[in-house]
């Protein structure tokens, strides 16, 4: 990185002093093209540091631009059916807290009666909270960038949660940040559990995912869970819900199950990365 910085410095100085130095066009083009090729063939782990650095340095103006864009988009939407009043929100929040307390009480009772300690879901895990760079959420729904990286024990393959559901897995980590491959990406291929059957789910690239070649038609709304994976996920967690079932193009007796994500990926602000056995990692 220091070498890159030095080269940039020299280039800027050379550009500024351009009036004194004469460099042929061909040579200029060759050097710059060489720089581009180095960027292209260098490992993404190194080059993505530039993108993370830009997002960090310009976080404030980028968030202003994002807010302007969202406020223009939301203007005129007064009676949104998805919003509730502050009173109703507090009611629901309190109800949730009460239910959680009651659950803990019941678990303590079971533990006392059976003498067996029931392990909590995601018990031996560290949950790393990370902010999503809004710039990275866009067309294609394939990947997002988050502001936590290898420094926070993140590693390739770890599951990423949002709104208590899985939105993707870590596909690339650098020290400053990480890339998350979303479940809707065409490159995503995740083992899932649907109605007691283990299958693979692929992203379609248009904010949906598909479980191909199922023997039985699945009812719309059925929950699709991520299958347990040793060392990465110790409990099934919701990925999405069945949207519809389409006939398979190759075989009319089989079904392609179309799955919609359990949370709105376009509105992601922050996510949680599941780091299993954190003490076992560096």
């Amino acid at each position: 990185m220091r070498l890159v910085g030095f080269c940039c410095g020299v280039s800027v100085y050379w550009i500024m002093a351009g009036k004194q130095t004469k460099v042929s066009r061909r040579m200029l083009f060759t050097w710059l093209m060489l720089g581009g090729l180095i960027l292209l063939i260098a490992p993404a782990k190194w080059t993505s540091s530039f993108q993370f650095a830009f997002l960090r340095v310009f976080r404030w103006p980028l968030s202003i631009g994002e807010n302007i864009s969202l406020s223009v988009e939301n203007r005129g939407i007064g009676g949104d059916s998805e919003t509730v009043s502050r009173k109703k929100y507090r009611e629901l929040l309190n109800h949730y807290a009460n239910m959680e307390a009651r659950l803990r009480q019941e678990q303590a009772k079971v533990e006392q009666l059976t003498g067996v300690r029931e392990s909590f879901a995601l018990g031996n895990t560290k949950l790393v909270e990370a902010l999503v760079y809004p710039v990275s959420i866009g067309k294609g729904n394939s990947e997002i960038l988050i502001d936590k990286g290898a420094d926070s024990s993140l590693a390739k393959g770890q599951f990423v949660l949002a709104e208590n559901s899985i939105v993707g897995t870590i596909s690339e980590v650098s020290t400053a940040g990480a890339r998350v491959r979303l479940i809707t990406s065409t490159a995503s291929n995740m083992a899932v559990d649907i109605g007691g059957t283990k299958r693979f789910m692929r992203g379609t690239g248009d904010n949906l995912a598909k479980i191909p070649m199922m023997k039985n038609k699945i009812e719309a709304g059925t929950a699709v869970m991520a299958a347990r994976k040793a060392g990465v996920l110790n409990t099934p967690i919701t990925v999405g819900r069945v949207l519809r079932c389409d006939r398979n193009m190759d075989s009319a007796v089989l079904w392609d199950i179309i799955v919609e994500p359990a949370c709105d990926i376009q509105q992601l602000n922050d996510v949680v990365v599941v780091v299993m056995n954190p003490q076992g990692q560096k």
Binding site: L37, L40, F50, Q51, I137, G138, G140, L145, R179
Partner: peptide, 20 residues
């Protein structure tokens, strides 16, 4: 390349070369 314009999250390099 820094912002992956206009398609988000392109790797670094392709746009520098093609624009150049």
């Amino acid at each position: 390349d820094l912002i992956g314009s206009p398609m988000p999250l392109m790797p670094m390099g392709p746009q520098t070369i093609s624009f150049g």
